[in-house]
Amino acid sequence: MTAKPRFFDLSDERGVLRTSISVTLMISSLGIGFGLVSGSFSIVFDGIYSLIDASMSLLSLIVVNLITAHAVSRNLPLKMRERFSMGFWHLEPMVLGLNGTLLIGVAIYALVNALGSLLEGGRDLEFGWAVVYGVITLVVCISIAMIETRANREIDSGFVRLDIKAWVMSAGITAALLIAFCLGYAVQDTEWQWISPYIDPAVLALVCLLIIPLPVSTVRRALADMFLVTPADLKAHVDKVARTFVEKHGLDSYRAYVARVGRSKEIELYFIVPADAPARTIGEWDALRAEIGEAVGGEGPDRWLTIVFTGDSEWAE
C-alpha cells in the first residue's frame, strides 16, 4: 500500500505549493501589519502583493489536484470526468497567464502610486520598524526560493517555476526596500534628512520598473498554449519520427498535428496507407501504433497521442 504523502511534502508539486501558500500568507500578514505601523506604502504593497500571490498559488494547487486526479483516475467524481473527458490540462496555461498578468498589474499600480507620492513630496515613516520587517522578510523569501528551486529540479513544474519567480521578485523588492530603509534610518537628524520622505516611494518605483518585465515570458508562453501554437521543437521531433516510419513501412505520407497545453503534449498522427497495401489484423495495426508511440517518447499521463491509419488523405486534412 502506497504511503500517503505529507501535507508539506517538498518532493511533490502539491506539497511545495502548500508550503508556499502557508509562508506567503504569513509574510502577507507581517507586511500589512508592519506597513501600517511604520506608515510605509511600499511595505503595505509588499503585503498585498504577497496576498495576491498566495491566492494564485491556491488556484494553482486546485488545478494541479484536478490534473493529477484525472490523470490517475483518483478522487474525481464520475460526473466531472464525463464533462471534462479530455482532462484539465487547458486550465494550467489559463492560471499561469492570469498569475503573470496579475503580478504585472500589481507592479504597474504600485509604480503609478509611487510616482504620485513623489510628486506630492513623499511620505514620512518609522524606519526602525521598516528595517526589522525588511530583514525578516528577506531571509524568508531567499530561503523559500532556494528550497523550491532545489525541489523543482526533480518535479519540473511550471506552477512551481512561476512561484519561484514570485519569491525572487519578492526578495528583490524586500532587498531594495531594506537598503532604502537603512539609508533613511542613517540620515535621520542629519543635514540629509530632507530626502527621507522620498526614499519609500522612490525605491518602490525603481523596484516596480525592474520586476514588471519578469512575468512577461510566462504570460507569453501561457498565451501560446491557450492559442495552441505549435511548439517548433516538438513538431520537428514528431516529423522526424513520422518520416522515418513512413520510409520504413512503405507508406505514402503522413500528417502531424502537435500542440502543447500546459504540461500536456497533444499529438495527432495520420498515416496515408497505399491502396494496394496488404491487409493487417487489428493486432498488427496496434503493434505499429506501439512502435510509433515508443519512438515519439514521453509516455505518461501527460501525453495525448492519437494515431490513425487511412487510405483516404481527406481524413487526415
Score class of each variant (00 low, 15 high):
L61F: 10
L61R: 14
L61M: 09
L61Q: 08
L61H: 09
V63F: 14
N65G: 08
N65S: 06
N65T: 01
I67S: 12
I67Q: 14
A69E: 03
A69Q: 09
H70S: 12
V72E: 02
S73Y: 03
S73L: 03
N75H: 08
L76H: 08
L76I: 04
P77D: 01
M80V: 00
M80R: 01
R81P: 02
R81M: 10
E82P: 00
R83D: 00
F84R: 00
S85Y: 06
S85H: 12
M86E: 12
G87T: 03
G87F: 07
H90E: 08
H90A: 13
L91H: 06
E92A: 08
L96S: 04
G97D: 15
T101H: 06
L103M: 13
I104V: 11
I104P: 11
I104G: 15
V106W: 09
A110Q: 10
L111H: 00
V112D: 09
A114L: 01
A114E: 04
L115G: 13
G116C: 01
S117Y: 04
L118N: 02
L118R: 04
G122D: 04
L125V: 04
E126F: 06
W129T: 01
A130M: 05
A130W: 03
V131G: 10
V132I: 14
G134P: 11
G134I: 03
V135P: 07
I136R: 11
I136T: 08
T137N: 14
L138C: 09
V139E: 09
V140R: 07
I142F: 11
S143V: 05
S143P: 00
A145S: 11
M146K: 15
I147K: 15
E148G: 07
T149Y: 09
R153P: 05
I155S: 03
G158K: 13
F159A: 13
F159C: 07
V160D: 01
L162H: 11
L162P: 02
L162M: 12
K165T: 00
K165Y: 03
V168Q: 12
V168Y: 10
S170D: 08
S170E: 04
I173S: 07
T174E: 09
T174N: 09
A175C: 06
A175D: 02
L178G: 06
I179M: 15
C182N: 14
L183G: 08
G184L: 10
G184A: 09
Y185C: 04
Y185F: 06
A186W: 03
V187I: 13
V187M: 15
D189W: 04
D189G: 07
T190M: 11
T190W: 10
T190K: 07
E191D: 09
Q193A: 15
Q193E: 13
W194E: 05
W194D: 06
S196I: 01
S196C: 03
P197V: 01
Y198Q: 08
I199R: 15
I199W: 06
D200I: 09
L204S: 10
A205H: 14
A205N: 13
A205M: 14
